[in-house]
């Protein structure tokens, strides 16, 4: 647990938390994924195909907000800045967000959302299972709680993928098209970067690349049951999210998400 110890030491002296920079950057990646996807899911409220699904997606969105809040609060307490969860969510700009491109893409149709959720939850399932053994005790506790949540998210997306894929001709076509839509954004979930390598070396994090096989296998099982085919590998892949390089929809998302607290700092109800 060397990285964590160094971070604490840096915080105590008030100096730059260089030793913990990779550690906190890694944590921010996890939290930003959860926050940005929770925002996209919250956009479904009143737009889901039926009332029950409004509730389901709102529940999942709330789970993800909870994960983001826990990690933000933790990061703010160990990176030497004393930032609150709100500071991290609302007062960072686009280049400081470390989420993958998958979660920031605009809301598409319902099949697209289930395809995105299927992959994201498959990734998070492996992620939090691995982090349940993290050397970072706080992260370990967050992961144990989150794992139960994301298993349900995965189940929800899988149930719908099967029903749409093995449903009517039209639902099958839409679900198949949704898999093609999501395909270019999948690889980034499982790409290692300097921060995840450092976090994995310290025993704090897990290398995303080690999660790919299990997630792909789980998704393949769902597609088989859903009578869907894995889309051909796309020529273009999203990348750069972990370094703060985002796609066009991200700016619009942040403008909407951050507008209120920035216009009325300290607003509360």
């Amino acid at each position: 647990m060397s990285s964590d110890t160094e971070t604490t030491a840096a915080t105590a002296t008030g100096g730059p938390a260089t030793a913990g920079a990779a550690h906190t950057a890694y944590l921010l990646g996890l939290a930003d994924d959860a926050l940005i996807y929770s925002h996209r899911l919250s956009e479904w409220l009143t737009w889901a195909p039926m009332l029950e699904e409004d509730m389901a997606m709102a529940n999942i969105s709330l789970d993800l907000i909870g994960q983001a809040r826990s990690i933000y609060t933790y990061v703010g307490s160990i990176d030497g800045t004393n930032r609150t969860e709100d500071d991290l969510a609302y007062w960072r700009d686009e280049r400081e967000f470390r989420n993958v491109h998958l979660v920031e893409q605009r809301r598409g149709d319902f099949a697209q959302e289930m395809a995105r959720m299927l992959w994201f939850a498959a990734y998070q399932k492996g992620l939090y299972a691995a982090l349940s053994g993290s050397a970072d005790a706080q992260l370990r506790a967050i992961a144990v709680k989150a794992l139960k949540e994301v298993r349900y998210h995965y189940d929800h997306a899988a149930q719908w993928a099967v029903r749409l894929g093995d449903g009517t001709g039209e639902s099958h076509d839409k679900m198949q098209a949704a898999l093609t839509w999501v395909a270019p954004y999948v690889a980034e979930l499982f790409s290692d970067d300097a921060n995840s390598v450092a976090a994995a070396d310290a025993g704090v994090g897990v290398l995303p690349s080690t999660l790919q096989a299990a997630a792909a296998s789980a998704v393949a099982d769902v597609l088989r049951e859903a009578t869907l085919e894995a889309p051909a590998d796309s020529r273009w892949h999203a990348r750069g999210g972990r370094e703060g390089v985002h796609s066009e929809p991200m700016g619009y998302l942040l403008a909407e998400m951050q507008h209120l607290p920035r216009s009325h700092p300290g607003a509360a109800w």
């Binding site: 039926m50 009332l51 029950e52 699904e53 509730m55 389901a56 529940n59 189940d155 929800h156 149930q159 029903r163």
Partner: peptide, 20 residues
């Protein structure tokens, strides 16, 4: 009560609506 395409999904919808 809940609407759902089948019983399996009904259990899930019920979980989201009635055991929050």
């Amino acid at each position: 009560s809940v609407h759902a395409p089948d019983a399996t999904m009904a259990v899930r919808n019920a979980r989201d609506l009635y055991t929050r």
